[in-house]
């Protein structure tokens, strides 16, 4: 067996594990099979069903969440790699004040049809707008390139993101002026 410098627990093959992470700013501890992905944990274990599964293979973006500040496909994050991470899902993001302009713009521009891609789109848009206050067209296209939508042709989604950016900027400016 490993010598004393090793943490033997880490070196045992595991079936289930207990993980601690932060979900929408709340600390969580779950005991799950080690075969679970973050998406399985969210949907089956914690019943956070806003994050969707469109492919399970990292190809569609429907499962997009924010992990440690990066847009992440929840379907490709294995439970073991989740320990200590900071996760934001659509449930948490849509309740945040700074997401309101995005939600409002999506509603006002009908940036949803069947809606299955929408939570992922909103998360990716939120991430984009928290990185760039006034994204260029190219930055918008790039930021949403990993989120497939079969219904909208993206037109209204892109319009909504632009409108939200304008809105966020006026809110910020007003905030500064006040």
């Amino acid at each position: 067996m490993p010598n004393k410098n090793f943490n033997s627990e880490n070196l045992e093959l595991k079936d289930t594990l207990e993980i601690n992470f932060t979900l929408n700013s709340v600390k969580r501890s779950v005991k799950v099979p080690c075969t679970y992905t973050l998406l399985d944990i969210l949907r089956y274990e914690l019943k956070f069903t806003g994050t969707k599964e469109g492919c399970g293979m990292g190809e569609c973006g429907a499962c997009t969440v924010i992990m440690d500040g990066g847009v992440t496909p929840a379907c490709l994050v294995l439970a073991t790699t989740l320990e200590g991470r900071d996760i934001w899902t659509i449930e948490g993001i849509s309740a945040k004040d700074d997401a309101k302009p995005i939600i409002d713009a999506f509603v006002a521009r009908t940036a949803t049809q069947c809606g299955f891609c929408t939570p992922g789109m909103v998360v990716a848009s939120y991430h984009l707008l928290s990185k760039y206050v006034s994204p260029t067209d190219d930055q918008i296209l790039e930021a949403l390139s990993g989120n497939l939508c079969r219904c909208t042709g993206y037109v209204k989604i892109i319009e909504a993101v632009k409108a939200a950016a304008r809105d966020l900027n006026t809110v910020k400016k007003e905030g500064r002026d006040a």
């Binding site: 490993p2 090793f6 070196l11 595991k14 079936d15 080690c34 073991t80």
Partner: peptide, 20 residues
């Protein structure tokens, strides 16, 4: 869905080298 595998979680490069 993923199934039927196990995971090892070494916590340092040394542990990784040992494990493999």
């Amino acid at each position: 869905m993923l199934r039927n595998f196990k995971v090892l979680t070494p916590s340092s490069l040394n542990e990784v080298l040992y494990v493999i």
